[in-house]
């Protein structure tokens, strides 16, 4: 596409002035952003000091710095059994599926939203698909339960009237990978597609007008204009999602299956395992150790991804 090339050429031709000159140019902006940066430091960076607790045996009486060191002792419980393999596999595989399907579905919906010209109708659709995002996972668990329970809608409303045999979902693990993916999509697609849709709304209309003049069909407009323009947003959102590759939505994997033991093989993730084993102990250190490990692994993945992106398209790299 012409405009993409033009933009790339423009940025290549752009020669950076000296740091001093740029500092002089941007100093009001730094000043403007100072409160934001201060907030990050207070709200996010200062509590990070607490991460050292992952290597300590936290004592409520002695506080963060007074607690005795413990080395890597807080991590071993994560690797001491067959559960290690299961929880890492589940966490990563579900995340991969979520990222791929979630992104595709959200873009699809965003494009459809862009087709709706009537603003009231569009707002209505937007509001409706955002509803699932608004409720807590605990509540979603009860919605799911209303469908899947032995007296749920699927059994009493669909299977029984048609003469099929009732299914005990909460003890049958073969269904759960699909159920979990479906619930995740259901809850998340509205939010993500609203982000993509906002991006699409901001595109310069003239591209599309020119394309129509050139005789491009809807499909061509999507593949040749919308998707390339969306690329930076897709890349950024994906990189951010990759950073959470080793974390999981606790509610999705714990509340939705109602913590049913027979489903553990397909529902155990690092977060649910940690919760189940530490639930009654109030062991701040071990819980933090698991979180720290998840962050570090995610961090490494993000650095790798970002490096690759920077090699290929430096403009779209996150940092």
């Amino acid at each position: 596409m012409v405009f993409v090339m033009k933009r790339a050429a423009a940025s290549n031709a752009y020669r950076k002035p000296s740091v001093k000159r740029r500092l002089r140019k941007y100093w009001p902006l730094y000043l403007l952003a100072l409160p934001s940066i201060a907030y990050l430091i207070i709200n996010n960076y200062m509590p990070m000091v607490g991460l050292i607790l992952a290597f300590k045996d936290y004592s409520f009486a002695d506080g963060i710095f007074g607690s005795p060191w413990k080395g890597f002792g807080n991590f071993t419980y994560l690797f001491s059994s067959k559960w290690a393999a299961i929880m890492f596999r589940n966490t990563v595989l579900y995340n991969v599926v979520f990222i791929v399907l979630g992104t595709l579905f959200a873009i699809f919906v965003a494009i459809l939203l862009g087709e709706i010209k009537h603003i009231k109708v569009r707002n209505f659709f937007q509001a409706m698909i955002l509803i699932p995002h608004l409720v807590s996972m605990v509540l979603v668990a009860y919605l799911v339960f209303a469908f899947l329970a032995t007296n749920g809608f699927i059994n009493k409303g669909i299977l029984e009237p048609t003469g099929a045999k009732a299914i005990k979902f909460y003890t049958a693990k073969q269904y759960w990978p699909f159920i979990l993916v479906l619930v995740h999509l259901w809850k998340g697609f509205g939010f993500q597609s609203v982000v993509y849709f906002a991006t699409i709304l901001g595109f310069d209309k003239t591209y599309y007008e020119a394309a129509v003049v050139d005789g491009a069909g809807t499909w061509q407009q999507i593949t040749k204009i919308t998707l390339p323009l969306l690329k930076p947003t897709i890349i950024i959102l994906t990189i951010m999602a990759i950073g959470r590759m080793f974390s999981s939505d606790f509610g999705l994997f714990y509340q939705i299956p109602m913590n049913s033991g027979q489903l553990y093989a397909v529902t155990t993730t690092i977060d649910t395992f940690t919760y189940r084993t530490l639930m009654e102990e109030h062991d701040v250190s071990r819980a933090l150790a698991a979180g720290f490990l998840q962050s570090v692994l995610g961090f490494i993945l993000v650095l790798g991804t970002n490096l690759v992106v920077r090699k290929i398209e430096p403009e779209n790299a996150l940092f």
Binding site: T76, S80, S81, W83, G261, Q262, F273, R276, T277
Partner: peptide, 18 residues
Amino acid sequence: VYDEYQACTATVNEYKNA
């Protein structure tokens, strides 16, 4: 026997109630 206990706990949770 902390690690052993936690690993067994997870297994117990999987089978016991069923």
